[in-house]
Amino acid sequence: MEKNTVLKRVYVWQLPVRFYHWLNALCILILAITGYIIGNPPAIQSGTEAFKGYWFGTVRFIHFVTAFVFFFNFVFRIYWGFVGNRFAKWNNFIPFKKSDWKGMLRIIMIDILQKESRPLRKIGHNSLAGFTYFILFIIFLLQSITGFGLYSAMSTSWFPKLFSWIVPFLGGDLQARQLHHVLMWFFILFAFVHVYLVFYHDYVEGRGIISSMGGGWKFIEREIK
């Protein structure tokens, strides 16, 4: 059944959400790069004396500073999940309703397996994306508590100390590091797939999803009755 549609411009991503998104993406980029270097420092043959250099310490410093930015940016996003617009609301992410699960199944059919060709009409996140972000948020949390748990051993400040319990809980610093390290890979894989899917949706649906994280606007079909 052929229908006529027009595109309607909708303000979806409020400025704080966009700001959060790009700051977050930047933090993760920096954390993954510095973290990878911490885990696998390159072989630099050097004749210098140790006192002349501090580059590895600097890499770690950047990691820790960025970690704080990352964490509080994330805390801010949680706050915005309660006060932001309906697309920013926390309930976008948690599949409470049966329809959320049904929606996810449909997305899989349409976008992943490509058994159906009709795009789903959703303004904010589709339910699968929302759920993925939910998982991602949990991983943000895990990464933060393992990170600050590890950091608590090198810090005298009260804040990282709040997380010191995680280390014995996981069975030691090595376990905490192993988890922290593996989770880095989760972010890398997520970013791959996420960026691809954003491009994919833009390409297939033409609703300006990429630019929506810039200006906040999406273009949504509306049927012409």
Partner: peptide, 19 residues
Amino acid sequence: KVEKGRIKNIEKEEGVNNG
């Protein structure tokens, strides 16, 4: 979509909390 060129009418929706 490319051929039909669907953009005909643009309405503004406020970013209000109605979700």
